[in-house]
Nucleic acid binder design. Structure first.
Lengths: 241, 241
DNA sequence: CGGAACTTTGAGTCACTTCAATCGGTGTGG
DNA sequence: CCACACCGATTGAAGTGACTCAAAGTTCCG
């Protein structure tokens, strides 16, 4: 028996059976959300920890001009917020990008998790990796051109999906529009379109009907400067297909 | 009795006397570092938690082209790494930017801190705020033009220095070169220079000999879209001078 | 079938880059 | 105490990656 959360936390280190069982217990009874539903809204004060159990979502923030910046994607096994007990309000929002399932973990259960050293460490690891991903996005947007940014993002998502068992082959469902890609990478949608064309012309990817295929993952990684070490996958494969 | 760490954690919530005492105990015996010394190097495996007790430092990462992206600044009271027990290696480096003092907190002491609920929450808060700052940097670099990015950064640093009692007036020591500003904001040094000129011409700041003066903090905040809520300062002032 | 949302293309513009030179301050060794 | 060297700040000029605007094409879906 297995699910995305268990798989993800296992990529940090092996879990004992009872820890695994506790995690599996949590994930019963998910709530279904349609595409483009609000999971969290900036300013609200969550009193549970919310977990994505299926689907895709994104974190984002609006700026004064009305533009938005997507600051991260969430896939199955990712926590929306580990704020409970600590931060009063959300400083950003989270929306689904596809029909999804989410689980609300009541604070009581979170405490149970934290009391188990292995799970406490695994949660801490998960938070540190989220932060490392954010750093890498900043590097990406700050230093790379459009094609490289997008290529780097694709490499990252591929690795993260593999980690939870959702992308055995370098070919997977990726429910992003070019507009959403633009909002993630600090680019205009028009320019994203042209950058994608160039990646296609170079034989690196195809991306059509929300389906991404990585044709040459070695070259994609190299041209984008992708180095998966920031994902801190201490166990399991480091990615070569 | 007081120090930067205590002040910073107090901006999250009041501390009991014994918690405060424990924090003060930690901060005896700092180690002095010259300017531009390495605090942490990408790839190393820290076995302590390192804390900046005086001075300025920056986190950064190099990309394949040899450019670097600075992904954050550290001021007195900031932790370099809360990785211990969890992450094997550093995925980025940290250098001082001025003569500084750092403190190594052995894992034993970290455990003592975590055993106290109030301190555990305060550390968790500190980590969550670091992540929020990173998100805001991504928004900044992804969505704003050069002058606004720099203005936003100045607002942030001002708030963070106030929080630890290092900037009573909107005028303080800021040991950054234009090159470092460029590396932070994803800009060229030449363009940073011109953006600074425009901020000066608009009567918003002066910045000379590593000294920043904010002439009109209200307008600086407004033009850069700075909203301090992401710093989650639940106690203490929210910033208007 | 029709409309909305997304993708693609073209043309013109602009923010930011690169290259290159100069200027200024500061530390150092003779 | 001066001369040199070095680093950072500044300026100018030319190039370009990415943007905006606008229109047309395509896909999706009720």
């Amino acid at each position: 028996m297995d699910n995305s959360l268990v798989r993800k936390l296992s990529s940090f280190g092996p879990l004992a059976d009872d820890d695994r069982r506790l995690l599996l217990d949590l994930t019963s009874n998910p709530r279904s959300l349609r595409s483009h539903a609000h999971i969290r809204v900036e300013g609200e004060a969550p009193d549970t920890v919310r977990l994505i159990s299926q689907g895709f979502a994104c974190r984002y923030k609006y700026v004064e001009t009305g533009e938005r910046q997507i600051v991260g994607y969430l896939v199955a096994g990712d926590f929306c917020d580990l704020h409970v007990f600590v931060l009063k309000t959300m400083d950003h929002s989270i929306d689904t990008l596809s029909p999804s399932k989410v689980i609300d973990i009541p604070t009581k259960r979170v405490l149970e998790m934290i009391e188990r050293p292995a799970l406490a460490r695994a949660l801490w690891w998960s938070a540190l990796v989220d932060e490392a991903i954010l750093r890498e996005w900043l590097v990406n947007v700050g230093q790379r051109n459009a094609a490289k940014r997008i290529a780097h993002l694709f490499c990252e998502i591929y690795m993260r999906l593999r980690r939870v068992g959702l992308a055995d082959a370098p070919q997977f469902h990726l429910p992003l529009t070019q507009i959403e890609l633009a909002d993630s990478m600090g680019l205009s949608a028009v320019h994203v379109n042209r950058a994608l064309q160039s990646l296609r012309e170079d034989g690196l990817i195809t991306f059509k009907s929300k389906r991404l295929e990585i044709l040459d993952s070695e070259r994609l990684r190299e041209m984008s400067g992708f180095n998966p070490s920031y994902l801190h996958m201490q166990h399991g494969d480091q990615g070569a297909p």
